[in-house]
Design a protein around this nucleic acid. Structure first.
Length: 871
DNA sequence: GGCTTCACG
DNA sequence: ACGTACGTGAAGCCG
């Protein structure tokens, strides 16, 4: 067997990876996509080749000696994107940590390094694989030198392989002749001029016939087409120069020592730490967990039998802190004793050496174990879990005061992640990598241990970032409030919902027929692609916008066409009805339970700004703006003997803006309970307050919204269908009217630029890595985020406080009424009729006093027999 | 699984 | 010149 060396063209692969992998950023705001893509390619190659030797080459950016021969050499290459540039030292650091040889030499191109090393190694009898994104290297291919060109497409990496024979097959010339082809056709990206008027086709034909440019020149008069013949004669010097430029040096003077390139186990501890920092989660699985000195598993114990279990709980009861976990335990041989929920095991940890798992069994079934755990939750000073809300159902004695949820804590520390399972927390905050393939018992132990061990680590980090009281005063109590809300659910009338859906269905069928009639054919109206073809190709309507994949058929585009084309009007109607039917009528019905209620989930660790999110189903986007959709709210009803009391904050975000900016005009306006949109209109449009038109007020309202979103003239112009110039004037006048707001927004951006995150009144942070981007768009986005996040986030903080207050008060007074929904600035209480007055008072009190601002907070309260009436 | 569209605040 | 409003979730299409 011949030994093998893999040579990687560092910059070329990094470049490929950068443009092939979507933008990734770690929590520090460092771009990582190119490094990630590079490593992906490298690992794939290594897995395939299993080489004895490995070297990565980098060129130092300077004109190379080959290129210096050209007097007018100028880099036509674009300067490297900043996001890519910052990743170059990172990949070098990673390679170093993996003990991989890096070769770079001032004044030498990577190609020349590759060529020289490749030749040297081949002469020593090695097989060579050159990994490059650059087809220039094809000239180096031989029987033993294989050129491998990776293509990153949609996540997966495919590699094109070329030995000498493959080059001949694909390009019709040998690798050596490939140089001459290039000398003739030139290459703008490499500043090789070539011969004018000779492209790839002609060049290949000429070299196929004459093998080299020199031989071709000797027969120059026979060359066809005549244009190529004439130009080769005329530009012969340039052709020769091009050949020199195109030829990769294989005898450069470089200090390459094969032994240094010896490839050993790259999965070092140093590399592990780096991968962790870069947040390359799935690559971490390449590291050998055992070799990492991870001895957590050594402490895992399985405990069975009532006596033994009692002893374990008695010991845990004395601990300062206990981590706990429930596990589905599909491997449990006694599923008979598992809980209907699927849980078949629990785990506990109260020290690094105290990690036990307990399977459900005959004499110690789930209810027994959960009962013991519940007692622990009540008793120990700190009871910690990963995703506590999911388990509170089985822990009736758990309390806010001593509970800790490491997932919620991890979310606060970085709200941008999409995943926060216990393995993520263990990796990021404990430096422990958990193998994916473990027994359920071991997984349970790890989860319990993570809850135990990460709690103090996270607590410290929260303290350091000023979020400890946000965590303990708001987020942890909220876990319990959200649990109560989910348990309560909301009653939905299934029969009425069905009727509503059927009515929609009938109208949809009618509209379908009419649309097909007008279109002259049947097609799928739900397919934007097919719809685009019908409207813009067949019916020749003017197309305003395009998406990545074709014509846009979005509502705002269609609305402009509707007055002229009856079919468009019908399509808009169809869309509206189809949406209502599929998402709401049919979509909600699936979630109605035996108890006639929908128990949706309120997610606490999803949004970047601190808001809640609602899923399965989403109860935060039930229609309200259009009457037809709004009717669906009539099927949301309280149980018998109850009514709905609904409360929503009046303009909470603008009030927060008034408070945070300290703008005197705005503050005074709110203190005097003025109509803020009318007043803004009056000021911005220089119109007496009482003479403001409806249009002016509407426009001013849009400006106010825009401010909260991080205003841009383009966005505002889109919203109001006015020119950008007009929009810009509105904004300018707004800032003249409210100079404090202008200053606040500027300060918010400056703060985020300086610190890397935006912050709310209650200390919640939202990282804004986009502000570091060199991309204009990205940076602008970052600035808008920096303006919006403190406002939206503070509003989220405030309503969370109100929710906790309301829920606590209802419980404290032993009331039957309960909080069941939150929609960002709105709370819905299913109210026992005799308690209506009291509930209204509590809502008003807890919502309006949730925060002490420079302006009053106002909650508007309504009662109704269903959600439609109460809103 | 990504894209488009559309429902909400 | 670039090309958007901020924050979500779900459904349907299509490669």
């Amino acid at each position: 067997m011949r030994e093998k060396i893999v040579l990687i063209d560092g910059h070329s692969i990094l470049n490929r990876a950068f443009y092939g992998v979507p933008d990734l950023t770690n929590s520090e705001g460092l771009h990582t996509n190119a490094v990630y893509g590079f490593l992906n390619i490298m690992f794939k190659i290594l897995d395939e080749e299993k080489p004895e030797y490995l070297t990565v080459t980098f060129d130092v950016h300077a004109p190379t000696f080959r290129h210096k021969m050209f007097a007018d050499y100028k880099g036509t290459r674009k300067p490297m994107a900043e996001e890519l540039r910052e990743q170059v030292p990172v990949i070098k650091e990673v390679l170093k940590a993996m003990k991989i040889e890096i070769i770079e030499q001032e004044g030498l191109e990577a190609d020349d390094l590759l060529g020289t090393i490749s030749r040297t190694c081949e002469e020593k009898g090695l097989d060579v694989a050159i990994i490059s994104g650059d087809r220039d290297t094809l000239q180096l291919a031989t029987e033993h030198v294989k050129i491998r060109i990776p293509k990153t497409k949609q996540g997966s990496t495919e590699v094109e392989d070329y030995n000498a024979a493959d080059v001949v097959e694909k390009y019709g010339v040998t690798p050596m002749e490939f140089i001459d082809v290039k000398a003739l056709m030139g290459d703008t990206s490499d500043n090789i001029p070539g011969v004018p008027g000779v492209g790839e086709k002609t060049a290949t034909k000429i070299i196929q016939q004459y093998q080299s440019i020199e031989n071709a020149y000797e027969h120059v008069d026979e060359i066809r087409p005549p244009r190529a013949s004439k130009n080769l004669k005329e530009y012969w010097e340039q052709a020769k120069m091009s050949k020199v430029l195109a030829t990769i040096e294989t005898h450069a003077d470089i200090p390459f020592e094969l032994e240094k390139a010896h490839f050993e186990n790259p999965y070092t501890e140093e590399a592990y730490v780096l991968f962790q920092r870069l947040q390359f989660k799935n690559m971490l699985s390449r590291f050998d967990v055992e070799a990492e000195g991870n001895d957590v598993e050594a402490a895992f114990r399985e405990v069975k039998g009532r006596d033994e279990i009692e002893r374990v709980f008695a010991e845990a009861l004395k601990a300062e802190r206990v981590g706990a976990a429930f596990s589905e335990d599909q491997g449990n041989v006694l599923p008979l004793f598992a809980h209907p929920s699927g849980f078949g095991r629990i785990a506990l940890s109260w020290g690094a050496d105290e990690i036990v798992s307990i399977p459900c069994d005959m004499d110690t079934d789930f209810d027994y174990l959960a009962g013991k755990l519940s007692e622990l939750a009540r008793t120990v000073p700190c009871f910690s879990m990963c995703g506590l809300k999911e388990y509170l159902k089985y822990l009736p004695e758990a309390k806010q005061e001593n509970s800790f949820d490491v997932i919620v804590a991890a979310y606060l520390l970085n709200p941008l992640k999409s995943d926060y399972d216990y393995t993520d927390v263990a990796r990021e905050h404990l430096g422990i990598l958990i193998d994916e393939k473990l027994s359920d018992a071991s997984k349970a132990c790890y989860e319990a241990y993570t809850a135990y061990a990460a709690a103090p680590v996270l607590e410290e980090k929260l303290k350091k970032s000023g979020m400890d009281s946000l965590f303990s005063e708001i987020e942890m109590p909220l876990v319990f409030t959200l649990f109560d809300m989910e348990q309560a659910g909301v009653r939905v009338e299934a029969e009425e919902l069905k009727r509503y859906g059927d009515q929609l269905g009938e109208r949809i069928v009618d509209l379908e027929k009419e649309i097909y009639e007008l279109a002259g054919e049947e097609f799928n109206i739900n397919s934007p692609k097919q719809l685009g073809v019908i409207l813009f190709d067949k019916l020749q309507m003017p197309h305003a916008k395009k998406t990545k994949t074709g014509y846009s058929t979005a509502a705002d585009v269609l609305e402009k066409l509707a007055p002229d084309y009856p079919i468009v009007e019908k399509i808009l109607d169809y869309r509206q009805l189809a949406k209502l039917k599929s998402t709401y009528a049919d979509g909600l019905a699936v979630f109605i339970g035996e108890d006639r209620r929908i128990h949706g989930k309120f997610n606490q660790t999803v949004t970047a700004t601190g808001r809640l999110s609602s899923t399965e189903p989403n109860l935060q986007n039930i229609p309200v703006r259009m009457e037809l959709g709004r009717l669906i709210r009539k099927v949301f009803v309280p149980e018998e003997g109850y009514v709905f009391v609904d409360a929503d904050y009046s303009q909470i975000e603008l009030r927060i803006l008034a408070h945070c900016s300290g703008d005197e005009q705005l503050i005074q306006a709110y203190r005097e309970a003025r109509d803020i949109h009318r007043m803004t209109a009056s000021q911005v449009f220089h119109t007496p307050f009482d003479e403001v038109t409806d249009l002016q007020r509407r426009n001013a309202k849009a400006v106010n919204f825009g401010i909260v979103y991080g205003i841009s003239s383009f966005g505002l112009s889109q919203d109001l269908s006015i020119t950008r110039k007009e929009a810009a004037e509105y904004i300018e006048h707004y800032f003249e009217t409210y100079p404090g707001v202008k200053k606040f927004l500027d300060d918010s951006v400056a703060h985020a630029k300086e610190n890397g995150y935006a912050v709310t009144l209650f200390g919640r942070r939202r990282p804004v890595p986009e502000l570091k981007s060199s991309n204009f768009m990205q940076r602008n986005f970052g600035e808008r985020v920096a303006m919006n996040a403190p406002i939206q986030g503070t509003a989220a903080d405030i309503i969370k406080i109100a929710m906790i207050g309301v829920n606590e008060e209802l419980k404290k007074r032993n009331m039957k009424s309960r909080l069941i929904l939150q929609v960002h600035d709105e709370l819905l209480i299913e109210t026992w009729e005799p308690e209506e007055t009291e509930v209204r008072e509590i809502l008003k009190d807890k919502m309006e006093n949730a925060a002490d601002l420079l302006v009053p907070l106002i909650a508007d309260i309504h009662t109704g027999r269903n959600w439609y009436e109460a809103k």
